[in-house]
Simulated assay, not measured.
Amino acid sequence: MSQTVDRALSILPLLAQGPADLGQVADRLGVHKSTALRLLRTLHEHGLVYRQEDQRYRLGARLFALAQEAVENLDVREIAHPHLVALNERIGHTVHLAVHEEGEVLYIDKVESRYPVRMYSRIGKPVAITVAAVAKLLLADLPEAERRAVAEKLDYPTYTSRSTPNAAAFLKELATVREQGWATDLGGHEESINCVGAPIHGADGRVVAAMSVSAPNVVVTAEELLSLLPQVRRTAEAISREYSGTTPNTPSAQGRSDD
């Protein structure tokens, strides 16, 4: 690591202890004030530090935003994975974990079924957003105006006769999902595949990820898969508790008033 980068990064732990002025930063780094100022200006330009009116520096909001994004989009997979594996071992069917990122819903983890018939889905692959249970859970959590804007921009492919036909129908289904706290895809993407899903909440009650169990109807019927919903929801709640350190309000977290 270059000396300049090393010095710049050394500023962050110092400011984590509280605001500090230029002299304090220079003394801690063992450099001239002009060098400390140059490093602070660079960090300030990237939003990692902020200069207060009293000329002291503190950690910037961008740093907290990056930390929050890392927690919500990366750590949730690490926390969820053992729970997904345990559920898969109990029920035998394919288990997915997904997040909403940059307008797409993406699978970030998958535990394969023990049965010979396998799902085509892959980690990193976008889901069929208008029909997938995980997509409904993630989009249902958006504030109403954002939910409506997203729904009106989407295309509505007719994958099967059960596919969501238009924005009005999609919004109606999202409202139901938001109220009940769980979602299904019963042959909406493939006639032979059914899916049930539940949300994973962060400490603020927002849905940070969604998990689902999927199976072909040659293995279990839709009714049999729906009977597993309590196990799916308990698994999602366990992940939420570990991830956020709080007990999620399910289904009321989905049924809360719009922002």
Rank of each mutant, 00 (worst) to 15 (best):
V127W: 01
R41I: 10
W182L: 08
E190W: 10
L37G: 11
T221R: 07
R90L: 09
V105C: 00
A98T: 08
R7C: 11
L174V: 12
L63N: 06
A86E: 05
L139R: 01
N73V: 07
Q231V: 03
L229M: 09
A36M: 11
L59Q: 02
R38S: 15
L154Q: 01
S113I: 14
A183V: 04
L43N: 01
N217I: 11
S113D: 15
I193W: 15
N166V: 13
A128G: 03
R256S: 04
A145D: 11
L39P: 07
G92S: 05
A236N: 07
V220I: 15
I79G: 05
L22Q: 14
P82K: 02
L66W: 04
L40P: 09
Y243E: 04
Q254H: 06
V177P: 08
M1Y: 06
E102P: 00
A67I: 04
M211R: 02
N249I: 04
H81F: 12
V218T: 14
S212Q: 04
G187L: 14
S214M: 08
T247S: 10
L63W: 03
R38V: 14
V25K: 09
Q17L: 02
A128D: 03
E101G: 00
V76M: 01
R118V: 09
I129K: 01
L63K: 07
T4D: 13
V31G: 13
G92L: 07
Y159G: 09
R7F: 08
R178G: 05
L9A: 15
E45D: 12
A16C: 08
D75N: 09
R256D: 05
S121I: 07
I193C: 13
D6V: 13
R114E: 15
N88L: 03
D185H: 02
H96K: 05
L137H: 03
Q52D: 07
A128H: 08
E146T: 11
P82N: 03
G188Y: 06
P126C: 01
Q68M: 07
A16S: 13
G188L: 12
H189L: 14
V232Q: 11
D185M: 03
A128P: 00
E144N: 07
A167T: 11
H44G: 12
E112A: 14
E112T: 15
E69F: 10
A8F: 05
E242H: 08
F64T: 12
E69S: 10
A222P: 01
A253P: 00
L228W: 08
T158L: 15
E101W: 06
A209F: 03
G188I: 09
D27G: 14
A168G: 12
L37K: 15
R38C: 10
E101H: 09
R90N: 06
L97A: 04
P126I: 02
A210H: 04
H32Y: 11
V218E: 11
D258M: 00
S227H: 07
G103N: 00
R38A: 15
S2W: 05
A133I: 03
Y159R: 11
